[in-house]
């Protein structure tokens, strides 16, 4: 007896052809990444040329580039950028280190957590910049107050991330440490810190972003240097083209610091399965 097949479904490999130019463009992530900003700049340029955008607030990108070259040539912006970076970094370290230490302490000990968390939780919702006048009264209007306000803002981000990281460590690893009779410090070093490290880095990324926000605002007070100061300064003299250049530099600084932390994270966490992005 033969059974007649009603229909045959055939699956064949698609014909192999070389990638077209469009394919290659789609695959180039760098190209895709700059396409959208480029389009925005072109539209912006056109809109100012035809007078639909007010040149006083949105000067043509071409004119901003002219200002950029002038400022870069004078070299002053780099000194100001260095000041801003310095303030960010000092404040970041003073905030992140206690953030990690307290995060781990509260994460590992329910007693310490019960004791300190209400205080920290009560302070957290206060907008950090609202503390700046008080900080300036305590530390003066110089560098110390800027470091302090950045440190406070960074602390909360890093602290809460670290705490979440430690609390979320799989219980089995704590059992392992306990079964191998780890001391408190060994538990920190071999389980809590490495286990929470991915969360700690997330906290650091949030923290460095916050540091930039705070430092740019704080540089309006008691200083003559820094990108934040320059932005406020160009507002006072209504130099909008320069302001856009400084804004561009702040944004590059933000992007660069995020990238730096991501790089550090990849170097420090070799056991993570995949590095997305």
């Amino acid at each position: 007896m033969t059974v007649q097949a009603r229909s045959l479904v055939q699956i064949t490999a698609p014909r192999q052809t070389g990638p077209t130019l469009l394919d290659r463009m789609r695959r180039s992530s760098l190209l895709m990444a700059i396409l959208a900003p480029l389009a925005i700049l072109i539209v912006w340029e056109c809109l100012t040329r035809v007078g639909l955008l007010d040149q006083r607030f949105f000067p043509a990108p071409s004119s901003i580039i002219v200002s950029l070259f002038a400022l870069v040539e004078s070299g002053r912006v780099f000194i100001d950028a260095a000041w801003t970076i310095g303030r960010m970094l000092v404040g970041f370290v003073f905030g992140a280190v206690p953030g990690i230490v307290f995060g781990i302490m509260l994460g590992l000990s329910p007693t310490v957590r019960a004791f300190l968390q209400p205080v920290i939780a009560a302070l957290y919702p206060v907008p950090k910049i609202a503390l700046f006048p008080l900080i300036m009264m305590i530390f003066g209007i110089g560098e110390a107050s800027k470091w302090a306000i950045v440190a406070i803002a960074v602390f909360f981000q890093v602290f809460y991330s670290t705490l979440a990281g430690v609390v979320n460590i799989d219980r089995i690893y704590l059992d392992v440490a306990s079964n191998f009779k780890a001391t408190r410090w060994q538990l920190c070093r071999t389980i809590a810190i490495p286990g929470a490290l991915p969360f700690i880095f997330t906290g650091c990324q949030l923290g460095i972003g916050m540091a930039l926000v705070i430092v740019v605002i704080a540089e309006n007070f008691g200083t003559q240097v820094g990108l934040g100061y320059l932005i406020w300064q160009s507002w006072q003299v209504f130099e909008v083209r320069d302001m856009f250049v400084y804004l561009l530099m702040v944004s590059l600084l933000g992007y660069g610091s995020q990238m730096a932390i991501l790089r550090l994270q990849r170097a420090v966490i070799p056991w993570k399965k995949d590095d997305a992005g």
Binding site: N179, T190, W271
Partner: peptide, 25 residues
């Protein structure tokens, strides 16, 4: 020393350091 049911090997250490864990502590 206990061998647990689920994977209890520490993900952040190489296999060598995992095996050495008790001795190192």
């Amino acid at each position: 020393s206990m061998i647990f049911q689920e994977s209890s090997i520490l993900p952040w250490m190489s296999i060598r350091r995992n095996v050495a864990y008790g001795l190192e502590l």
